[in-house]
C-alpha cells in the first residue's frame, strides 16, 4: 500500500528546545491514526510540519510522495483542523464554510449542511462571538465536509460537551466508511476514540515512542495485583511499565511476553489479572518512564 506520509529522522528545534527529535514513521492510506501524548510532546509541531505551516530543522518529509511546502498537489489534499484555528475577525460561520467550499476540491455541500444542523450552528453569527464549543464545531464541520484525502484533527473538541463529541465520532465513522481517507486524530481523550483507531502513534518529549497497530497495543499489557512479594517474584524478567503499592499489596502493569504464557503464570501464582485500557497504557508509558525497565530477554 502506498504511504501517505513518510517521515525520516525529522527534527525541529527552537533556540534552546528540541520540539521534535529524530522522528521517523510512515502512515498508510485510508487508515485512522491516533496521535497521542501529553501536552507539549510535539504532536502539534509534527502536524504543522506535515502541512507545511512550519519548517523542519532537518530530516526528510514526504506527503503523498512529495514535499508539502508550496506544493499544490499535496496541500490541496490536506485539511488540518487545529484547536487554535484562526478565522478572519469579521467572518460569520457561513463565510468560513463558503470559503472552505472553494478551497477543498472534495467539499460536500449537503454533508456540511447536515453537520450544521447536527451541531446547531447559527450560520449568520460572527465567529468571533461564538462560544468555545461552537468554534470547535465549526472546525469539525470543515474538517469532515472537506473530505480531504488526508484529514487531520488536532484536539478539535475543546469546549464541546460529551454529546457533541459523540456526534463528532459518529459522523466521522459514518462518513469514513462511505468515503475512506487517511485521518489523524490527535487527542487526550483516548478512551473516547480508541475504538475508532486502527493505528496508534504516541509521542513523548519530542520522540515517537509507540508506532503500533491499535489492536496489538490493546492486548499488549495487563495488570497483576496481589501480595507484594508474589508480584515482585512474578515481575522478574518482565517489562514493567507501572507499579503501585497499596498496603501489603502491589499492583503492577506489565507488557505481555512474546509467547503469551505469562497470564497463566500469574493466575497460577494466585495473582489477580485485569486488563489495561489503551488510555491507561499510554498514561503509564508517557508518565512513569523512570520506572520502566529494560526488557530482559533471556
Amino acid at each position: 500500500m502506498k504511504n501517505v506520509i513518510e517521515v525520516k529522522q525529522l527534527n525541529k528545534s527552537y533556540e534552546k528546545f528540541n520540539a521534535i527529535h529524530d522522528t521517523s514513521f510512515a502512515l498508510q492510506a485510508n487508515k485512522i491514526y491516533g496521535l497521542l501524548g501529553r501536552n507539549g510532546a510535539g504532536k502539534t509541531t509534527l502536524m504543522k510540519m506535515i502541512t507545511a505551516q512550519i519548517f523542519p530543522t532537518s530530516g526528510d518529509l514526504k506527503v503523498f510522495g512529495e514535499g508539502p511546502y508550496e506544493n499544490a498537489n499535496v496541500l490541496s489534499q490536506i485539511c488540518f483542523i487545529k484547536e487554535s484555528q484562526k478565522y478572519p475577525d469579521h467572518y460569520n460561520i457561513l463565510d468560513a464554510l463558503d470559503v472552505s467550499k472553494s478551497i477543498f476540491p472534495n467539499w460536500d455541500v449537503n454533508f456540511s449542511r447536515s453537520l450544521i444542523k447536527d451541531f446547531n450552528l447559527p450560520l449568520k453569527r460572527r465567529i468571533k462571538k461564538l462560544s468555545r464549543g461552537m468554534l470547535s464545531a465549526v472546525g469539525i464541520v470543515i474538517g469532515l465536509a472537506s473530505r480531504a484525502p488526508l484529514t487531520i484533527f488536532d484536539e478539535p473538541y475543546l469546549g464541546l460537551d460529551a454529546v457533541s463529541r459523540g456526534l463528532f465520532y459518529d459522523r466521522l465513522m459514518e462518513d469514513y466508511v462511505e468515503h475512506p481517507r487517511t485521518v489523524i486524530l490527535s487527542t487526550h481523550l483516548i478512551d473516547e476514540v480508541s475504538s475508532l483507531l486502527e493505528h496508534i502513534l504516541v509521542m513523548d518529549n519530542g520522540k515517537l515512542i509507540i508506532d503500533q497497530d491499535a489492536e496489538e497495543l490493546r492486548g499488549k499489557a495487563f495488570t497483576v495485583t496481589g501480595q507484594a512479594s508474589k508480584v515482585e517474584a512474578f515481575l522478574i524478567g518482565k517489562e514493567t511499565v507501572h507499579r503501585e503499592p497499596f498496603g501489603g499489596l502491589l499492583s503492577a502493569t506489565v507488557i505481555h511476553s512474546e509467547n503469551g504464557s505469562d497470564q497463566k503464570q500469574a493466575t497460577a501464582s494466585g495473582l489477580e489479572i485485569s486488563p489495561v485500557s489503551l488510555q491507561q497504557l499510554v498514561v503509564h508509558l508517557t508518565s512513569g518512564r523512570s520506572e520502566q525497565k529494560e526488557v530482559n530477554t533471556k
Partner: peptide, 17 residues
Amino acid sequence: TNQFAAFYKINPATAAK
C-alpha cells in the same frame, strides 16, 4: 464490516479482522 463499524463505533478494519 461497515455495519459492524457503524453499530459498535469501531474501525471497519478492526471489524474486518
